[in-house]
Simulated scan of single mutants.
Amino acid sequence: MHLMMILSALTVSWLLRCSKNNSQGRWQVRWRRSLFLFLFPPLLIFMTAIAVLFMGPQGQMGGMYTGWLSYELVFMALTFFAILCVKLAFQGWQSVESARKSPRVNLEGKQVRLLNTKALFAGQIGFWQPELVVSQGLLQTLSPDHLDSVLAHEQGHYYYRDTFWFFWLGWVRSCTAWLPNTEPLWQELLVLRELRADSYAASRVDPLLLAESLLLVVSNKSVVVESGVCCAALGTSSVGDRLEQRIEALLAPLEPIPSEQLQSWHSFLLAFLPLATVVFHS
C-alpha cells in the first residue's frame, strides 16, 4: 500500500511538471503559476515520504499489509535530501564568510561590504539577514543617481528575503532535478525574482535610471551574471531575452505591487493530504 502511495505521488508530480508553463503576462501572475509548478510536486513527494516514514514498516493500511521496502526507500531518499541540504548550507556559509573578508564601508548611510575588484557587482549575500556587497568598480563607474537605483534594487531583494527563500528553493531544485522542467522553472523564478526587485525599486527611483544601470552592469565584460548560493545580485538572469524582459518592464507604466494574498497559498495545502493517510494505518 505504501508503494502505491509513493507511485501515485510520483505520477501526479510528473504530470504536473509536464504541463506547459506560460512565460507571458504580468510577473505577479507568472510568479504564482511558476512557483506552484516548481514547488507543489516536490512538496507532495516530501509529504508522502514523511507519511510513509511515520507509519513505519509494520501494520496494515486499507486491508493491505505494509513492508520494509517502501520504508527503506523513503528513508534513503529523505537522508539523501538532508545531505543535499547540509551541502548547500555549507556552500552558503562559505559565501558569507568570503564576503565578510571584505571591509565594511559606509555608503549613503548604509553599511556595505566593499569588494576589491573592477567588475561591476552589487548583491545581497547571506540568509535571513544578508549583507549588501558592492564592488569598487561599481562605485567608480556609476553616477550617484545610478548607484541609488542599484541600491534600491538590492533593497528589494532584502525586503522579500530573496536570499533566504531561494536557498530553500535551490535545495528543492537539487532534490528533484530528475523531474521534468525543473531547470526551466528555476530559471523562470530567477527572472521573476529580478522583475520583482526591479518593480520594488521602480516605485522608489526613476525606472529609466535603473534600466540604464542594469545595461551598464550587464555590458561590463567582467561582471558576474549568475548568483551563487545565498546570493541575489543585480545582474542575475540578465542575458538575452531575460534582459529584454526586465528593460521592457522598467519602461512600461508602473503597476502597483499587490500584497501577498493568503488565497494563493491554499492550493499548496493539497500537498499535505498524504499526511492524512496516517490515520488509516494500523
Rank of each mutant, 00 (worst) to 15 (best):
T141R: 03
D241V: 15
T11Q: 08
E248S: 14
W265M: 09
L189N: 03
V278Y: 10
H157D: 02
S143G: 10
L35T: 11
L208Q: 14
R113K: 15
C85T: 11
G62S: 04
L44R: 00
K221F: 10
F80N: 06
S19R: 15
K101W: 11
S34A: 14
A197Q: 00
W165I: 10
R242K: 12
P42S: 02
Q263D: 11
Q263P: 10
V134P: 00
D198N: 05
P103R: 06
W171P: 00
N220Q: 08
P274G: 05
L10F: 08
W265N: 07
L151W: 01
Q187H: 14
V217Y: 00
L254D: 04
L185Q: 04
L84T: 07
G67M: 05
A201P: 01
S222R: 14
A202E: 04
L37T: 02
D148P: 09
L16T: 06
D148R: 15
A99G: 02
R26M: 12
A122L: 03
L35Q: 06
T236E: 13
L132N: 02
F81K: 02
Q28P: 05
G56P: 05
G123Y: 01
P184D: 08
G63K: 03
S149F: 07
W27C: 03
F90I: 13
A211S: 13
H2S: 05
L88T: 06
G123D: 02
M76R: 08
A51S: 05
R113H: 13
H157Y: 03
R246A: 00
A202P: 11
F38M: 06
S8W: 09
S98Q: 15
P42G: 00
S23C: 13
V112H: 00
C85W: 14
L3K: 08
M5R: 07
T277L: 15
N116T: 13
Y159V: 09
D162T: 11
V52A: 04
C175T: 03
D241N: 14
L53R: 09
A232V: 01
G235M: 01
S203H: 15
L254P: 07
R104S: 14
I45A: 03
S102V: 08
D241G: 10
S13A: 15
A177Q: 08
Q111M: 12
P253K: 01
L209E: 06
Q245W: 05
W128T: 12
T79D: 08
S227A: 11
S222M: 11
L53E: 04
F272N: 07
V12N: 07
L35V: 06
G137A: 04
R193V: 01
I45R: 07
L216V: 13
R113M: 02
G109Y: 06
K20F: 11
L254R: 11
E244Y: 03
Q91H: 12
D162E: 07
V223W: 05
I257A: 10
S102M: 15
L169Y: 09
Q136Y: 07
A49Y: 06
N220A: 09
V279A: 08
G92L: 01
C85Q: 13
L273I: 15
I257L: 08
P103V: 05
M55W: 04
H157N: 03
K118W: 12
Q129S: 13
F80Y: 10
